[in-house]
Design a protein around this nucleic acid. Sequence first.
DNA 1: CTCCAATTGTTGCGATTGCAACAACATAGG
DNA 2: CCTATGTTGTTGCAATCGCAACAATTGGAG
Lengths: 152, 152
Amino acid sequence: MPKKLSRAAVEVWARFIRAEHRLLEAVEADLKAAGLPPLVWYDVVLELARAPDGRLRHRDLQARVLLAKYNLSRLIDRMASDGLLARAPVAEDARGAYIAISEAGRRLQKRMWPVYGRSIARHFAAQLDERDLTELDRILAKLRAEPRRAPV
Amino acid sequence: MPKKLSRAAVEVWARFIRAEHRLLEAVEADLKAAGLPPLVWYDVVLELARAPDGRLRHRDLQARVLLAKYNLSRLIDRMASDGLLARAPVAEDARGAYIAISEAGRRLQKRMWPVYGRSIARHFAAQLDERDLTELDRILAKLRAEPRRAPV
DNA sequence: CTCCAATTGTTGCGATTGCAACAACATAGG
DNA sequence: CCTATGTTGTTGCAATCGCAACAATTGGAG
């Protein structure tokens, strides 16, 4: 091991995993209770709505929503058949595909946000003060920096 | 909303979700690379190994591993057919079932820990110092306190 | 005791996921 | 050109998940 792993660190790790799990569960439950689709759907419509021209390449969308590629492929199938988005060819790269949001997709995003936002407020933000947020953000930033993989 | 939800809070929320997602993915990948079963399996054998007599009621195990009940039912099926644990009747409650770990189950727990621990060390603990851990723990404790549900 | 509501755990079934293989195209090297 | 290698996205298939319904039993109210 890189360093000796302290018992305390393991406990914080466990709490971290569990806390996130509970929170996500609570948020998903709120969405479902409001008759809305799951969180990934929101991620997709949000990323697309934000993107210039309301579209992104499949791979770029994938990088943003943290979803395996085969997984995203099929999620897009489902969302497309719901009319929330559509695939379009990429002029410069015949392999690629743009995923373009539709008006219905934008409406879904706007409809989901209040519920999702309220959920974040209630389960997450309301429990923390300014300093907590700052500290948490600082710590998360450190965690983003992945240790270098085995040297190439 | 309980309070006005700040943009900053939403961003921290997003980073929180993503960080945890990435970390879990990395850990699962490490386990798989070592030819080991997924994390839930570890959770189960660990909780059972810790419990007095190496067994827990289905419902108690469920509460510890944060898994839907139908889901746990089937995970237990699979682990039982791998000989890692076994079901046993509960004397005082004919509905219930004890889940009892086997020697093979204990061996699996011991075999998984080094890999899992190393993974925690590398992806999580190595990125944080003492103060980070303390602060994170303090913040997570606040998040554990769920807001009261709608008044009964 | 008797009945009704709640608890405990399982199961059928359709939806979603993960893995591995694949097709189609792009890009670089000769 | 022509080939080898990498990229992009999809798909078949098996494993797993989520929901709703269920059986079995318990516990409490009358």
